[in-house]
Nucleic acid binder design. Sequence first.
DNA 1: GACATACTTCAACGCCTGTTGGAGAAAATG
DNA 2: CATTTTCTCCAACAGGCGTTGAAGTATGTC
Lengths: 206, 206
Amino acid sequence: MSARSGRWRSGMESRRKILEAARTRFASDGYDKATVRAIAADAGVDPSMISYFFGGKDKLFAAALQAPGSPREPVTALLAHGSAGVGAELVRRFLQLWDATTSLEPILALTMSAGSHGPSAQMLREFIDREFTAQIAERIDGPDRAMRAALITAQLMGLAIARYGMRVAPVASADHDDIVVWAGPIVQSLLDGETFQSARKDLAPG
Amino acid sequence: MSARSGRWRSGMESRRKILEAARTRFASDGYDKATVRAIAADAGVDPSMISYFFGGKDKLFAAALQAPGSPREPVTALLAHGSAGVGAELVRRFLQLWDATTSLEPILALTMSAGSHGPSAQMLREFIDREFTAQIAERIDGPDRAMRAALITAQLMGLAIARYGMRVAPVASADHDDIVVWAGPIVQSLLDGETFQSARKDLAPG
DNA sequence: GACATACTTCAACGCCTGTTGGAGAAAATG
DNA sequence: CATTTTCTCCAACAGGCGTTGAAGTATGTC
């Protein structure tokens, strides 16, 4: 009957290696360019194993988007004790997250390759909204909460794409601090719900 | 010899139709998904004409990135008379630009599909840097000019991707004003070079 | 040992990609 | 009219894609 308790043979290990390779490949190459053959090669298995274990590339993608250390926990932990002064820290952790790991959640290249249609687009959209934007929106106050949370997401997505995707100078090569100095207060302003109009003098155009 | 003065036959018109179709397709589908066959079908010509006229898909992409009303002019015109109070207007025009035209410069989908490598990535990187980021950097003052200009680019890229690419709610459906209210002051702060640290009290993390 | 189950390998399928070469037609030139 | 030049269509190529099915192998159970 069903796989009993202990692993029957190497099945579960192959499945795990595929999943790991898929996350890395999806994250670095995007959905389309991350070919089944490349993922299988990274995992050291035959390409057909992917259809065997997961039922197809799209199913594998969905599986790769499920389990891993999602950004939900860092976000909730960071915003648990209020949102004051947290903007800079959010940007900093965001940068550390990207710089530290090679097999992050497949967000960047996915964002860049999923496009607005196709099999991966909707899954990715729901994933980011559920695991990130909604988590922020739940933990801030003031007007336009959803809008501000979405703009924070947009801000960080733009930052990630500029730095890690398109390698726009000097964002791509700058130290974390040099970016946090500018981006931190921006995120903070969106968290606080202040447009800075009150704190600024010369906003109105001449 | 060379094509004399008047068009010899229908060559130039086919070439023009291909270029127009290419811009639209590249912008909506990205470099990879915009197939030569699809572009040719849109233009009403045979796929082989693309290689005939342009010498290949990558050359066509380069040509599509060249001529059109580049964002350089709007940017220079906007920043010609100082940068004070221009942030909101820059965001507003940016949104209008995207909403108005269907065949904009192939930036969004290109950004999303070019990835960080490949034939289109470097061309796109140079294009955005030359036509947009550098134009801003030349027209602002204060510390970290290049960084701030790049962050404005990142800000707008993130906005475009969130609104037009991934269709993140509510950014995707909001009126221009609702976005400008939040994003305008952010861009303005980057233009002015103020981190608002002076105007703010609780920036430092706990 | 005999059987069944789970995994692996291999080869091939059909589809789509960008590109090429040759045949043919139309316009300009002599 | 004859020739050259420019453009168009058609067919095919080699290469990559995701997926499938059959054969084979190792592990488990009886």
